[in-house]
Design a protein around this nucleic acid. Structure first.
Length: 850
RNA sequence: GGGGGUGUAGCCCAAUCGGCAGAGGCAGGGCGCUUAAACCGCCUGCAGUGAGGGUUCGAAUCCCUCCACCCCCA
C-alpha cells in the first residue's frame, strides 16, 4: 500500500490462524473453473441468455481495491444468474489504448505494446485470483490488430454514411509542445500540464462523428432504460435540448436600401417572449460578422477582447464567478441592430460569455430576465426593461449590493410588451414565435448543447484513422482489404508531446488507393472512447470472419442485461456507446432493431481514503494482493459486499483491516459447520421437535430474505442475514441438532453463499456431496415454513409502547382492539380514562389515543 | 451558480408501504477453555436518527428552512 505506512494486508504481526488452507482451496477452484471452462457459453445454449458485463478496464497493472469491488459485484451476478438457470455471457477485455502507455514509452523507451501487454497480464492475473470467472475465449484488447481493423472498418462505414466528417474546429494548442491537448491536459489556470505554457485556441482540421444526428433519439431512449435516475438526468442535461426561435436583427443602416447590401445578425433565444426587453445584442468573439460590425474607433478594444477570449476555456468564459470582471470581458462594436419588436436600435457588443458553438453565436440580451445579461448590463451601464412582473418584494429585497433584485427568471405576467402584456410566459412565447414566423423574420428551432464528437487525437498509441490525403482525389479511405492500417514499430518517442506518427516518413508517405499517385497518410488516431463504444457487441461474437460480429449472434445476447461500472462514465462512455449501437444498426453492422446497448445499469460507489477517491494518481491505492495471501479472496469479496450498500462510497480506514478479518472469521465458522459433515447424528426417527422446526423455519426465512436481497442489490443485508443464521445454527449443530436438519441448514447456507464466496462454497460442497455447488439450482423457500405462528403486536398509548402481545397473524381488528384494551399495562396507564380513539393495524399494532 | 447524494451507537451499517429505533459486523468490557496467551465458545454496554419547524393517532422515513461532507454539471 503506497504512501500511508499502513503496510499491505492486516496489521496483525502474525497472520490469523484459519480453519482451512485458504490459498490452496482458492487456487484449486480457480484452476478448476478455468480448466473446465465452466463459464464458457455459446449462442446455441438452450438456457435463456443473460449478459452481465462490468466495464472493461484500462490495464494499469495489478488490480486495486476499486477493481476488486467492481468485479466482485459482476462475478456475484454471473454465478447467481447461472444458478437461476441462465446461460450467462460473462466476457472480459482491456481498454488498452491510451496515454499512460505512451507516456511510459517516452519515459522508459519501452514500446507501448510491450508495456501494455505486461500490465494486462498483471491485471488478468489479479482478477483471476479474486475468483472472478469469465469466458476468456472472448477476450478483447483494443490494441489487437484484429480489433483495430474492425474499428477502422466501422469508421469507414460511418464516413460512407455521412456519420464521420472532417471539419475545422478550435482545439487546445500548446505552443511549447507544438501539439493539441485534450481538455483534461489543460490545467485550471489555462496552462499545459506538461510544459506550463499558456494553452491557446487554434483552428485545425479534425475528424468528427455525427452524434448530433441522434440527439433526439438519445434523449427519448433514456425513458425506457432501467438506469439510475441521476445518470439519466446527467445525460439529458448533457444533450441539453432547448426549443426556441432564431430570428434576424437587421444592422442599423444596412436594411438593403441606399445601395448597401442588407446585413442582419441572426440570434437564437429560448425566450422570444422577452424580446420587448432587449436592450442590447451580443456576438461571440469568434463570430464571422465581428469584423464587419466593428467600427474603426472600437477596433482596438474588440481585438484585445478577441485575443483574450482565444486564450480562455469555455468553463472560464461561462463562469459566474467571473461576472465581476465582465466589464473587461465585453466591448462595444460601434454598431447597432434594430429590435423588430420595438423598431428601435440597440447596441451590439462582443462578449466572451456568448459561445460560437451554441445556437447562432449571437444573442439578444434581456438583462431583466437573464442573470448573465443582467451582470453584463450592470457592468456596462446598459438599460434594463422588465417584461415579466417579478413577485411582490423582489426588487425591494434587493440584490447582493442592495440594488434592485436582479434578473427575474421565473414565471409572471408580461409587462412592457405591448401586445403580449398580461399573458403568462408559455403563451407569450408561443405568440412571439408565431409573430416572427408570420413576419418572415424567424423560425422555430431546436438547439442542443450536445456537439458532434471530435475523435481526432494527435497520439501514437491509438487506432489509426484509416484515410489518406491525395493531391488529386482528396480524402480517400484505405480499402477494406488493406486494413488494418497499423502504426509502425520503428518509431522514436520523444518528450515533445508530438505523436511519433507525424514524423515517421515511411508511414506518412504512401500512394493513393484510387490514382496511385503520391498521398499522405492521416497521422491522427481515434479517441479511445471509440474502442469502448462497441466492444460489448464484439464480445457476443469475436469469431465470425469478415465482420466485426455477426448481427444475428449479437441479437441473441444483446442488450446487455446488467452493465456495471463507475459513475464517472455516466456521460461520455455511456452516451457514445448508445450512439454507436444506433449508428451501427443504421449502417447494417449491428441488428437494426437494437437501439439501446445496456438495459440495466448499476453504478457502484467508489473507494475513498482520507476523503479522496482511491486512485493511482493520488498515490493512495490499496492492493488486494496482501489480503489474498492472508485472509483470501473470499473474505475480501465478502468484505466488499458486507461493508455497505453497493451504490455507496466506501471509506477505507484504519479499522477496515479488522472488519475484513471479521469476514474471514465468519467464513471459518461456516467451514467448521460444514466440514467434514454435519453435527452429531440424531437417532430419533419421530416427528421434529419444536426446536428442530425453529431451525427449519429459519432456513427457509433465510432463503427468502437472501433471494430478495440479491434482487434489490442489498448484499450487505444478505451477508448480515447469513451471519445471524450462523449464530443461530451454531449452538444447535454443536449440541443435539438432528442430522437432516443441520444438513439442510448447512447445504442451504453454502448455496446462498456460493455467488459471494465461491471458493469456500465450492470446496465445502464438494466434500459434502462430490459435485459442483455452482451447478446446482438456486434454493427455493417452502412457503409453508415462512408462515409465522404468532406475531408480536405492539400496544401503544398516545404513540408510546406500553405492552407487547403475541397474537395469531390472522387476528382481526375487533379481536386486536379487545386484546389491547384488556392488557393490564394499558389499563394501568389509562387509569379509567376512556379512549378518544383507537387506531388498529392488525396484527402489528394498536395505538390508543386518549 | 445549478443538479444529485449522504448524515442513525466510539466506528461501518439495518430498519423493504409512515407503525417496537437495532439485524449483522468492528472496536471495548466480562466469563468459559488454556500453565499462560492467541484461537475458539458464550455473555454484554453504549444512540434516539445533523439542527429547527410542519403534517399525522404515530416520522429515521413525508413536507419546509438551515448546516456539514461528497459527486456531477456550469
Amino acid at each position: 500500500m503506497a504512501g500511508k505506512g499502513r503496510g499491505p494486508g492486516p496489521v496483525r504481526s502474525t497472520p490469523m490462524a484459519r480453519a482451512y488452507d485458504v490459498r490452496a482451496v482458492e487456487r484449486k477452484w480457480q484452476r478448476r473453473w478455468s480448466d473446465e471452462g465452466t463459464y464458457e457459453v455459446d449462442a446455441d445454449d438452450p438456457r435463456p441468455p443473460w449478459y452481465v458485463l462490468t466495464m472493461y478496464p484500462y490495464p494499469s497493472g495489478p488490480a486495486h481495491m476499486g477493481h476488486v469491488r467492481n468485479y466482485t459485484f459482476g462475478d456475484l451476478l454471473v454465478r447467481h444468474r447461472t444458478m437461476l438457470g441462465h446461460a450467462v455471457l460473462s466476457p472480459f477485455g482491456f481498454d488498452s489504448f491510451g496515454l499512460p502507455a505512451e507516456n511510459a514509452a517516452i519515459r522508459t523507451g519501452t514500446h507501448p505494446r510491450s508495456f501494455t501487454d505486461a500490465r494486462i497480464e498483471e491485471l488478468k492475473e489479479s482478477i483471476t485470483s479474486l475468483g472472478a470467472v469469465y469466458d476468456w475465449r472472448r477476450e478483447i484488447r483494443s490494441h489487437d490488430p484484429e480489433y483495430i481493423k474492425w474499428n477502422q472498418v466501422i469508421f469507414e462505414r460511418f464516413l460512407e454514411a455521412g456519420l464521420a466528417y472532417r471539419a475545422t474546429a478550435p482545439v487546445n494548442w500548446c505552443p511549447g509542445c507544438q501539439t493539441v491537448l485534450a481538455n483534461e491536459q489543460v490545467l485550471a489556470d489555462g496552462t499545459c500540464e506538461r510544459s506550463g505554457d499558456v494553452v491557446v485556441k487554434r483552428d485545425l482540421e479534425q475528424w468528427f462523428l455525427r452524434i448530433t444526428a441522434y440527439a433526439d433519439e438519445l434523449l427519448a431512449g433514456l425513458d425506457d432504460l432501467e438506469w439510475p435516475e441521476r445518470v439519466k438526468t446527467m445525460q439529458r442535461n448533457w444533450i441539453g435540448r432547448s426549443e426556441g426561435v432564431e430570428f434576424d436583427l437587421v444592422v442599423e443602416g444596412r436594411d438593403g436600401s441606399h445601395g448597401r447590401p442588407r446585413l442582419a445578425l441572426r440570434v437564437f433565444t429560448t425566450r422570444p417572449d422577452t424580446s420587448f426587453g432587449m436592450t442590447y445584442a451580443v456576438v461571440a468573439p469568434e463570430h464571422p460578422m465581428v469584423d464587419e460590425l466593428t467600427t474603426a474607433e472600437h477596433r482596438p478594444a474588440v481585438d484585445a477582447l478577441r485575443a483574450r477570449a482565444a486564450a480562455a476555456s469555455d468553463v472560464e468564459r461561462l463562469s459566474e464567478s467571473g461576472a465581476a470582471g465582465l466589464g473587461k470581458r465585453g466591448a462595444f462594436t460601434g454598431s447597432s441592430v434594430v429590435n423588430p419588436f420595438t423598431g428601435r436600435p440597440v447596441p451590439v457588443f462582443v462578449a466572451d460569455y456568448v459561445l460560437m458553438g451554441y445556437g447562432t453565436g449571437a444573442i439578444m440580451a434581456v438583462p431583466a430576465e437573464d442573470t448573465r445579461d443582467w451582470e453584463f448590463a450592470r457592468a456596462h451601464g446598459l438599460p434594463v426593461v422588465r417584461t415579466v412582473q417579478p413577485p411582490e418584494g423582489w426588487d425591494e429585497h434587493g440584490g447582493p449590493d442592495g440594488g434592485p433584485g436582479g434578473a427575474w427568471t421565473g414565471d409572471g405576467a408580461k409587462i412592457n410588451s405591448d401586445w403580449l402584456d398580461g399573458l403568462d410566459i408559455p403563451t407569450a412565447k408561443e405568440r412571439a414565435a408565431a409573430w416572427l414566423d408570420e413576419q418572415g423574420l424567424g423560425t422555430r428551432t431546436v438547439n442542443y448543447r450536445l456537439r458532434d464528437w471530435l475523435v481526432s487525437r494527435q497520439r501514437f498509441w491509438g487506432c489509426p484513422i484509416p484515410v489518406v490525403y491525395c493531391e488529386r482525389d482528396g480524402i480517400v479511405p484505405v480499402p477494406e482489404a488493406e486494413l488494418p492500417v497499423l502504426a509502425p514499430d520503428d518509431v522514436e518517442f520523444r518528450p515533445t508531446g508530438e505523436s511519433p506518427l507525424a514524423t515517421h516518413q515511411g508511414f506518412l508517405h504512401t500512394t493513393c488507393p484510387r490514382c496511385d499517385g503520391p498521398a499522405r497518410r492521416e497521422t491522427d488516431t481515434m479517441d479511445t472512447f471509440v474502442d469502448s463504444s462497441w466492444y460489448f457487441l464484439r464480445f457476443t461474437d469475436p469469431w465470425t470472419p469478415g465482420m466485426p460480429f455477426d448481427p444475428e449472434v449479437a441479437r441473441h445476447w444483446m442488450p446487455v442485461d446488467q452493465y456495471i461500472g463507475g459513475i464517472e462514465h455516466a456521460i461520455l462512455h455511456l452516451l457514445y456507446a448508445r450512439f454507436f449501437t444506433k449508428a451501427l444498426g443504421d449502417v447494417g453492422l449491428a441488428p437494426a432493431g437494437l437501439r439501446e446497448p445496456f438495459a440495466r445499469l448499476f453504478t457502484q460507489g467508489m473507494i475513498r481514503m482520507d476523503g479522496k477517491k482511491m486512485s493511482k494518481s493520488k498515490g493512495n491505492l490499496v492492493a488486494p494482493s496482501g489480503y489474498l495471501e492472508t485472509v483470501g479472496a473470499d473474505a475480501l469479496r465478502l468484505f466488499h459486499l458486507f461493508v455497505g450498500p453497493p451504490a455507496d462510497d466506501v471509506d477505507w480506514t484504519d479499522q477496515t483491516d479488522s472488519v475484513i478479518e471479521g469476514c474471514a472469521r465468519f467464513l471459518d465458522r461456516v467451514w467448521r459447520l460444514s466440514v467434514p459433515a454435519d453435527g452429531p447424528a440424531s437417532t430419533a426417527s419421530d416427528a421434529l421437535a419444536p426446536e428442530d422446526l425453529a431451525v427449519r423455519r429459519a432456513v427457509h426465512r433465510l432463503i427468502d430474505k437472501v433471494t430478495r436481497d440479491y434482487e434489490r442489490w442489498s448484499y450487505n443485508t444478505a451477508v448480515a442475514a447469513c451471519m445471524e443464521f450462523v449464530n443461530l445454527l451454531h449452538p444447535y449443530a454443536r449440541s443435539d441438532g438432528r442430522h437432516e436438519v443441520v444438513g439442510e441448514a448447512v447445504d442451504t447456507l453454502l448455496l446462498l453463499l456460493a455467488p459471494m464466496t465461491p471458493h469456500l462454497a465450492a470446496e465445502a460442497w464438494e466434500r459434502r456431496h462430490g459435485d459442483h455447488v455452482h451447478a446446482r439450482g438456486w434454493p427455493v423457500a417452502d412457503p409453508a415454513l415462512l408462515i409465522e405462528e404468532t406475531v408480536t403486536m405492539v400496544v401503544q398509548v398516545n404513540g408510546k409502547v406500553r405492552d407487547r402481545i403475541e397474537v395469531p397473524p390472522e387476528v382481526d381488528e375487533g379481536e386486536a382492539e379487545r386484546l389491547a384494551l384488556a392488557s393490564a399495562a394499558v389499563i394501568g396507564v389509562l387509569n379509567g380514562v376512556a379512549p378518544e380513539r383507537v387506531v388498529v393495524r392488525p396484527p402489528r399494532l394498536v395505538n390508543i389515543v386518549v
